[in-house]
Amino acid sequence: MDSSRERSDVELVKLAKGEDFSAFEELVHRHSGRIYSLLYRLLRNREDAEDLLQQTFLSAFENLVRFREEASFRTWITRIATNFALMKFRKEGKIQMVSLDDPQSYTEEGVPLPREIGDWSVNPGVVLERKELIETLEGAIAALPPIYRYVFLLRDVEGLSNKEVAGIMELSVSAVKSRLMRARLYLRDLISHRLKE
């Protein structure tokens, strides 16, 4: 094998299953930053994110031989992390049906009708300073009730399919789609509001 070529996750998983610890360490190095950000965004607490990051990779290490590789390692590790976060939330009774409803009107399918949204002819990523952009985005994520936050982060940020998110969240695919739409519009409205300031 050409040692200068970056090994794929599939190759690293095979090596790690064969007890090559450096291959597992490479997988940790590759995915831990993303998983930490996901956990932090889900839990909104640094210590909890740190603890669950460790639990996630320990669990992956212990269960790697049982990983059937039907999904990618990325999806598998995301599922593990999210399940830990969900367990924590459920244990603490934080997952509730908090609705984003307000006096806004909805279409027949339950999609909120748009408010007055200004045209984003210039991308907010260009208009806002980096620090300001991060504050805006993270503030918006934090303001999103957990049931919407989980679906949005898993689907739009982590790139899982609707079916995968439905499986993790124990929801129907149509419930995932509906929550995703509401989350997107809610976040979009918050960013628009910030742009107007």
Binding site: R34, R41, L53, W120, N123, F152, R184, R188, I191
Partner: peptide
């Protein structure tokens, strides 16, 4: 509507805010 929803998704996807 379509443009702003697309840009919202892209904004969040493109940025990884927290370092370990």
């Amino acid at each position: 509507e379509v443009d702003t929803v697309k840009k919202t998704v892209t904004l969040f996807k493109d940025h990884l805010p927290y370092e370990i």
